[in-house]
Structure formats: structure tokens, C-alpha cells
Design a protein around this nucleic acid. Sequence first.
DNA 1: GTACTTACTACATGATAATGTAGTGGACGT
DNA 2: ACGTCCACTACATTATCATGTAGTAAGTAC
Lengths: 211, 211
Amino acid sequence: MAVKILLYDDNEALRQSMETLLGEEPDLEFIAGIPNAETVETDVRELKPDVVLMDIDMPGVNGVEAVRRIRRIAPQLPIIMLTVFDDNENIFRAICAGASGYILKRYASIEIPSAIRNVLTGGAPMTGTVARKVLQMIPPANNSDQEKTDLSQKEISILQLLVQGFSYKMIAAQLKISHDTVRFYIKKIYDKLHVHSATEAVSKAIKDGLV
Amino acid sequence: MAVKILLYDDNEALRQSMETLLGEEPDLEFIAGIPNAETVETDVRELKPDVVLMDIDMPGVNGVEAVRRIRRIAPQLPIIMLTVFDDNENIFRAICAGASGYILKRYASIEIPSAIRNVLTGGAPMTGTVARKVLQMIPPANNSDQEKTDLSQKEISILQLLVQGFSYKMIAAQLKISHDTVRFYIKKIYDKLHVHSATEAVSKAIKDGLV
DNA sequence: GTACTTACTACATGATAATGTAGTGGACGT
DNA sequence: ACGTCCACTACATTATCATGTAGTAAGTAC
């Protein structure tokens, strides 16, 4: 049985050409091309596609939001994003929303059939530049791994409270130590973190995963 | 001029077959196959490869560590990892270390030549299952985060400076607005974020990806 | 035009933070 | 017993922040 493919794209010409393109593949079946994703949940439920091709840039419900909606009702359904831009922002959003692949339209005509087969066998088809960008999203992490600023247990707990927006007074009350002691520790924290204000300390703490 | 390729793999047979394989590609030149990565820095400096193929599982200096070392002296040199296992741990480590691609050995014979060309044109060649795993590493994040606190452009830029630890004065100077205006905006930010201090605002800004 | 919103500036006041200096008492090694 | 760390407390000073109230100029809405 042929693989049923559902396409979302607001561009009439693209829907046409995609239908033609997929028509030439005997194992792939273009079942519908829909110009907007307003009714994406019912579409998916009724048409039961095996793969969804989703334009990222549509009026009304955009592609990323559509992916989110699909994921709520069909967590495993492969969704391949189609887009003209390979900007980080959209790629990141789409992937967080649960897209399975990400292909640039300009390569779509040659890549789509194999991308569909790829995604069905557990792959994640991506245009080369997109793959590179995805890799860059992974924390460039502990390369020069961290002379991890070693804060004492007490310093860490104070830093945590600071991150939660506690004032010195509140921290003192919480930890049952004097207000001045809180300041004493916070000063030490500043020294170790090489910062000079609570906001910097909080920023660094979160970004460096100290809390 | 042919693309110069340097291979690291402790398996003699694999080095042989890779040399044979690449010998059939006129645009690719196998310059060396080295069984261990002890001297990877000097190797790279002297042989000046255009692409490195790196086995991930070698005795002594392993592939991931080798990537780290190469990255210190050649941040841009494409490195494609070769491995028999597509376990998350290794993939993650290699990518964090700065690998450019990740290919399973069992597919290497058919994928390597195109992977090399891919990586040279800015791509990130990955075996399908690896690509899928890489996507899964991205935080499944803010699906339901929504009601995205919509800060104005100016509010965001002020928030960014705040996150960097700037004082009101510094922000005012930076943005060439009055000190009081900074406070005016920060108050609005607090309102929108439902916080009452700079530390809370910074914390929320970072955690919610507002900056 | 009047009403209303935006973007910005101004002044005032009490609270909080940042930094310095200094002292206590207990735990440590020698 | 000696010095000397460490954890904690204390006091003082200046800078900065949080919040309120209020006013101006420009732009929009009707």
C-alpha cells in the first residue's frame, strides 16, 4: 500500500507541483493539499496520512503551531517541514514543536521523495545547512571543561534563593542566619563568579547551570 | 585539487577498505590512515587535511577526545565521526566536542563520499537514525509555554542589558535615554513578567528564553 | 478638535544592595 | 598553647533599586 501524504501549503502552485512530483512515485500517494492549517487536527484524524509535509510560513495557523497541534493527537506521525528560509529561529521552533525533518523548498523537488522514505524508516531528513544549524543548537558545552567554579553547599543554596528573586532579608529568614551573613556569602559568591551584582550572578548561575 | 582526507581508525582492515573506497573517487584523496590519535595535533598540522574521518572508539585517545584536540587548533576543519554504535551518549559527546557529521560504519561505504562532499559545502552529514537522535537532544521545550509575554523591542533590549548585569545608569548611557526612562521601562517589564526585582526578571528572562 | 494612547522625562522617598572593615568563637594542625 | 583558618555576626557608608505620582510631546482614533 502506498504511503499516504498530506501537504499543507498556502501556495497553490507549490501544491500542484508537489502533487505532480509525488504522482511520479509509485510508492507514494498524495492524498490532499490544504492551503491552511486551521483544521489540522480533524484533517489528520480523517485523512490518516502516513506523512505530513508542512509549510512553515502560512497565514493564520503557522506551520510550527500546526506541528504542535498534530503532536497532541499524533505523537509519532512523521512531519517534514518545508521552508524557504533556513533561519535558526524557525528551525529551532519547529524542532522544539516536534518536527521530524526540515527541508528547504528549493531542494524539495529532488529531496522530498527520499526524505519521505527516510523519515518512515526512522530517519530525520534535513537539508545539509539545516543539519549544521541543528548541531550548533546543541550546547557547545564543556569543551574547555570548566574549572567549574566550586561554590560551597551553602553558597549554592543562597545562590538558588537569589535566583528565585529572594531579597537578603528573605534569604536570611529562610536559612535562619543573619542578614549580614547572607551578605557575607553573597560577597564570596560574587568573588568566585567574578561579578559585581545580583543580576550578573543570577545570569551566570543559570547559564552555567550552577543551579 | 583533490580533497585531502585523513582517517583515524585502529582497525587495519577498515583503513584499507576506506583507502580503496576513496581511491575510486577522483575528487577525493586519501592522504593517510592512522591507527591512533595520540599525535592528532601534529598530524593535522603537518598533513593539512581538508576533512578528517574519525573512529569514535579507539584505544588510548578516543575519537571524542581527538575531536576536542583538533578543535583547539582547527576550529573549522570538518570532522566526520565513524562508529558502529548509534548510542545517544557517544553522539552527544561527539557533537558537543565539535564533530561536523556522524556516520554509522555499516553505511560508510555508500555514504562516505557524499558525506565528505556534503560537509565541505557546509552540511552536517548524518545517518538517518543519528539525525533523529540529534533532534531528540534538542529540548522538547516550550510547547505549552505560550501566552508569550510580549515585551516591546525596547523592553527586550533593556532586559538584555539587565541580564548582562548593567545598572540603570549604564543602561541609560548605552541606550542614550534618561535614567528615569530606564526605570519606567523596567517597571513595565516587571509588570509584564509579574516579578518585583531585577534578579527575578533576569531569572525569568533566561529561563523563558526571552533573551 | 477631543479623547486617548505611547514614549519619554522628572522628582521624591523608603528599601535594598554593594563594599569595606572588624570582631567572635570553634575547629584545625603542630 | 599558638597561630590561623572558617563560619558567622556586626556596623557604617554610599550607590542603586523599587515604587508612586505627575507632566510633556507626538501620534492615533473617531
